[in-house]
C-alpha cells in the first residue's frame, strides 16, 4: 500500500508573552492508502492540533511532513491551499457549510477552486455522484439550514469527497449530532473506508475510536500508544 502521509518528529509550540505551550512533542506517524486511523485522547492532548497540521491548516514548529512523498513542511499559504484542495478532504465538527449556498454549490465548491478547470457538466456529474453516495441527491437545492445536523454532516462528507482526495481528515464528526445521527455518519465513514477511502479521524469518543482499524492515542502532545503500521514497523 502507498504511503499517503508521513510525519517525522513533528512539534508544535504555542508562544504567548508569558507562556510557552508544547502542544505536540516529536510526533511521528504514517498513514497508508486505505487505512482508517483514529486519533483519540483527553481534551487538550493535541489531537486537533495534530489534525490541523496534517491538513495543512497550520504549520509545525519543527519536524518534517510528507504527503504522497512530497515534502510539504514549508509551503506558502497558496501552495498549501492547492495541496489541501487536491489531496485532502476535510470534515469538521461544526460542518462548516456556507449558509448562503445550496447543498449542490457547497459540495461543488472544492471543484471551483481546483487547478484543473471543470466544465459545468463534469461538476454536476461529480457532485450528484457524491450526493448519491451520501444519500442526499434529493436535497440538492436546499440550503444547509433547511437540513438536520446529520444531513448537514453528510453534505460536508460529500464536499470532502468531491475532488477525489487522497485522504479524509475528520475532526469530531459526531460532536454536534445526536447519537442516532452520529451513528449514521460513522456508518457512512466506515462504508467509505471499505470502498477504499483513506480516513484519519480525531475523536474523544472511545466507541467511535474503536471503529477505526488503527488507533492512535495521544497524551500531553505525545503518542501514548500506536499499534504498528507499515510505516512504523
Amino acid at each position: 500500500m502507498n504511503e499517503i502521509l508521513k510525519l517525522e518528529q513533528i512539534t508544535k509550540v504555542f508562544e504567548t508573552e508569558e507562556l510557552e505551550t508544547h502542544a505536540l512533542s516529536g510526533i511521528s506517524l504514517s498513514i497508508h492508502q486505505g487505512e482508517y486511523v483514529s486519533i483519540s485522547g483527553p481534551s487538550g492532548c493535541g489531537k486537533s492540533t495534530l489534525l490541523s497540521i496534517m491538513g495543512l491548516l497550520d504549520f509545525a514548529t519543527s519536524g518534517k511532513y510528507f504527503i504522497e512523498g512530497h515534502d510539504v513542511t514549508s509551503l506558502t499559504l497558496n501552495q498549501a491551499a492547492k495541496v489541501r484542495n487536491e489531496k485532502i478532504g476535510f470534515i469538521f465538527q461544526s460542518f462548516n457549510l456556507i449558509d448562503e449556498l445550496s447543498v449542490f454549490d457547497n459540495v461543488a465548491l472544492p471543484l471551483r477552486y481546483h487547478s484543473q478547470k471543470f466544465s459545468n457538466q463534469e461538476i454536476e456529474q461529480r457532485v450528484l455522484a457524491r450526493l448519491e453516495q451520501v444519500g442526499l441527491s434529493h436535497r440538492i437545492s436546499h440550503k444547509p439550514n433547511q437540513l438536520s445536523g446529520g444531513q448537514q454532516q453528510r453534505v460536508a462528507i460529500a464536499r470532502a469527497l468531491v475532488a477525489n482526495p487522497s485522504i479524509l481528515l475528520v475532526d469530531e464528526p459526531t460532536g454536534n449530532l445526536d447519537s442516532k445521527a452520529g451513528d449514521q455518519v460513522m456508518d457512512l465513514l466506515e462504508e467509505l473506508n471499505k470502498q477504499g477511502t483513506t480516513i484519519c479521524m480525531v475523536t474523544h469518543d472511545p466507541r467511535y475510536a474503536d471503529m477505526a482499524r488503527i488507533k492512535v492515542q495521544l497524551l500531553d502532545g505525545k503518542v501514548l500508544h500506536a499499534p504498528l503500521t507499515k510505516a512504523t514497523a
Binding site: G55, L57, L77, N78, A81, K82, R84, N85, E86, F90, F92, S94, N96, L97, I98, D99, L109, P110, Y113, H114, R159, A160, A163
Partner: peptide, 16 residues
Amino acid sequence: RFEIGTRIAIGARTQD
C-alpha cells in the same frame, strides 16, 4: 470569518 476559513480550508487561494 468561518465561511472564509472554510473556503480556504478546502483549497481557496488568496486570489479566490
